[in-house]
Design a protein around this nucleic acid. Structure first.
Lengths: 232, 232
DNA sequence: CCAAAAGTGTTGCTTGTACACCCATGT
DNA sequence: ACATGGGTGTACAAGCAACACTTTTGG
């Protein structure tokens, strides 16, 4: 099927590397694999895999995520392609970095542990192989951009959450502390959350109301995600 | 040299496609090639080329630009990778889109014409092959983002320019009209332009002062560009 | 009743926007 | 002198940030 004109050109190995971010204990965590062989043995690695013949790179990323974490319908965003010829000493591999946002919960932790992976706090990352550290940095930059232009949280928090939890998430993403009053007002003015009649009593005597994203806001947010999956 | 482990995986054709933008007659223009053969004969194409064995994709993009326009030291930014398996009917080719900003001047126009390329106003683009239209749209989005977070213009305008020209450029990028007074104040407050003692008398009797970017601001802007070229 | 966290109000400052106004000068 | 576009001033509104204040309730 391949046009003869193309025959003269080099083909390349193509991989995807996923910066999988979760939120737990008031900080962002990154899912990493230990590398058990040379070179760079002892360092840690993003979850990655090669792109197959008949799939989009977005699908390759989803496949990698599914195979290693069992998770489906994950929020994914393409970040950047990395192509230094010697970035992978084993062969010339061009890699496309993605970031993914997932909810960390116990069953995922077990599943993930079976595969040898481990959640690392972003603030205390170990040494990463190749250019993976740059992939992480660029992903965080993108995540910050995204979080400033729209309210994120539905991908990282449980379905219902308090505004305090949401604020802590934003504190973790931006590495600063937002003013409780101002944050609350600003978020509520976006008109994407609805208050439930249940309170979280664990943090205080007064209790903090639970909120959740309105269906409308979720619909709007999920559209681009599924576009991602099926139309590149 | 290739590690045996990689042998099982598919290799892919990798190309770069460049959204080359220039500014002329108060509008943004896009450099396109006519496609002279089937399929999609009669449509127009971005300037592109395949990635070679031992070059970064950034360098591939620079090479394509140099070979087709003769221009060096061009401002380049990676935008997104496109990977639908059938996006190119000739073969499975994964393509990475870049946008480039260049100054249009007469000698470039001649040079470009020799290659059969043509500058098209963004507002009146012809039909493009494959997914090139999406590449253009995504590039414009990125350009707008960039232009909102920092003053661009040194790549698109002559070395000296009036604030009116700069405003027209911004009008063209954002498809709206900025208020003359407010635009001027905001731009000058950024403290990256210096006023020359020369006036452009062509537009009015009073004349409009020429400005240029300060060396300091250019140094800061060019750093990331050359990083792009040599360290992916 | 009081400590402590949740939530509201108030104020001053910065920024954006609309638009009126002044300025310089070639004809 | 006046029309024309360049350039400045002003006044109002919106948004942000700091922080004081009120509310609730388990101990």
């Amino acid at each position: 099927m391949t046009n003869l004109v193309y025959r003269n050109y080099t083909k390349h190995y193509l991989s995807v590397d996923c910066v999988i971010l979760g939120y737990e204990e008031e900080e962002l965590k990154l899912l990493l694999y230990p590398r058990g062989f040379a070179p760079e043995e002892g360092k840690w690695s993003l979850l990655g895999g090669f792109v197959n013949e008949n799939e989009t790179i977005d699908n390759a990323a989803l496949r990698v995520l599914y195979n290693t974490t069992g998770l489906e319908e994950i929020y994914l965003e393409q970040v950047h392609s990395f192509s230094e010829p010697d970035r992978d000493p084993g062969a010339r591999v061009v890699s496309i970095a993605y970031y993914a946002l997932v909810k960390i919960n116990q069953q995922d932790i077990d599943l993930v542990r079976e595969h040898g992976a481990h959640w690392w706090p972003l603030s205390k990352l170990p040494d990463l192989i190749f250019d993976h550290r740059r992939m992480v940095d660029k992903s965080i930059e993108r995540l910050q951009q995204k979080a400033s232009s729209q309210l994120i949280g539905s991908e990282l928090l449980p379905e219902t959450f308090t505004l305090i939890q949401l604020r802590n998430l934003y504190n973790a993403i931006f590495l600063r502390t937002f003013d409780p009053g101002n944050f609350r007002r600003k978020i509520l003015s976006l008109d994407v959350l609805e208050r439930l009649d249940i309170k979280d009593m664990s943090g205080s005597k007064k209790g903090a109301f639970y909120y959740r994203f309105t269906q409308k806001s979720l619909d709007m947010k999920f559209k681009p995600i599924f576009n991602l999956i099926n139309q590149d």
